[in-house]
Nucleic acid binder design. Structure first.
Lengths: 147, 147
DNA sequence: ATAGATGCAAACTATTTGCATTCAA
DNA sequence: TTGAATGCAAATAGTTTGCATCTAT
C-alpha cells in the first residue's frame, strides 16, 4: 500500500512545457490553475480552485477557472472525479490510482495500489474498456469511530 | 463476464414490503419511483425518473422525486452513481456490481464480475473501507469505432 | 391524531454561454 | 495579425427548502 506523494513545487517551466506540448497557450491563468491543482491533494472543486488561484492572481474569474479546467481535462493534464452527491472535483495526479472516499465528510484521498487495479480484458461484451478506477467508500481517519 | 438482468416487473407487494421494512411509509409516489428505478437499466438522473414516474402518476412533482430518491438512498434501497461531469444518477441494483461508463455518450451500464471486485484489506492506512466500486471507462458498443 | 409525505413556488448552487476585450504565438 | 483566452454579466441546469396541505399509520 502506497500513498501518492506529489512534488510540493513543480518547476514553472515544466508546467509551461506541459501546456505547450498539449497545444494549449501558456497563460498566467492556465499556469496558476495547473500549479494549484498539482499542489492540492484534496481534489478541489472548481470553486475551491478559484479561491486558491485568486491568492496569487486576484483578477482571475470563476468562469475562466471553469474554462481552464475543461481545457486541462481535454488535454489530459487533469481528470475529473465523480463523487456521488457532490460537485465535480479535479485531480492533476495523472498516474493511475484509486480513490478513498469518506462517506461521512466527503474527503477524497488518492490511493495507489497495483493489486487493486483490475486487469481489463480487451473487450467486455460490446464495450471497449480503456481505463478502470476504483472508488473505495468508507470512513477516513478523522471520521471513523475511535478505538 | 455477466450482465445483470433485473426482473421486468417486480411484484408490487415486494416493493411495499421493502419500504415498510426500511421504516418508510408506503406512498404511491414512493412505490412508483422505486418501480421505475428497478425497471430502468440506464441509471436515470432525477429528471429522467420524474418523467417516467409522471407516466403512471401525472401529479407527482419533481421536488417529491428528489425527496423520494434521497429517502430511498438513505434506506439503502437505491444508490447514487457519481459520473464525472454529469448529474447524479440513481441505481436500484443492490447487488455489488461495477459500471461501464462510455466516455463519448455518457451511457452507464451495470457489470457484474466477481474477478473485478478487489479484495479490501481490513484497513487502508487510517481509512476504514466498507465497499469498493469499479468504474470502467471506455466506449460502448454504439460509440466504439466500427470494425 | 399525528408525524411523515406531498406539491408548489421560491431560493440556492453549480455550471455554461455570449460577447467585447486582451494577449500569446 | 489573429485566433485563442479572458472577464464580466446574464442565462441555464440541477438541487434544496419553506410551508401549507394531505395521508399512511
Amino acid at each position: 500500500m502506497r500513498i501518492v506523494i506529489r512534488s510540493a513545487q513543480p518547476p514553472p517551466e515544466a508546467l509551461a512545457e506541459s501546456c505547450h506540448a498539449a497545444g494549449l497557450r501558456v497563460t498566467p491563468q492556465r499556469l496558476a490553475v495547473l500549479r494549484v491543482l498539482m499542489q492540492s491533494h484534496d481534489h478541489p472543486a472548481p470553486e475551491a480552485v478559484f479561491q486558491r488561484v485568486r491568492g496569487e492572481l486576484p483578477s482571475v474569474s470563476l468562469a475562466t477557472v471553469y474554462k481552464v479546467l475543461a481545457s486541462l481535462e481535454r488535454a489530459g493534464l487533469a481528470s475529473r472525479v465523480g463523487v456521488p452527491g457532490d460537485a465535480n472535483r479535479y485531480d492533476a495526479n495523472l498516474a493511475p490510482h484509486h480513490h478513498l472516499i469518506c462517506t461521512r465528510c466527503g474527503d477524497v484521498t488518492d490511493h495507489e495500489d497495483p493489486h487493486l487495479a483490475p486487469a481489463l480484458p480487451r473487450q467486455l461484451g460490446g464495450f471497449l474498456p480503456s481505463e478502470a478506477r476504483v472508488q473505495i467508500f468508507g470512513l477516513c481517519a478523522r471520521c471513523r469511530p475511535r478505538k
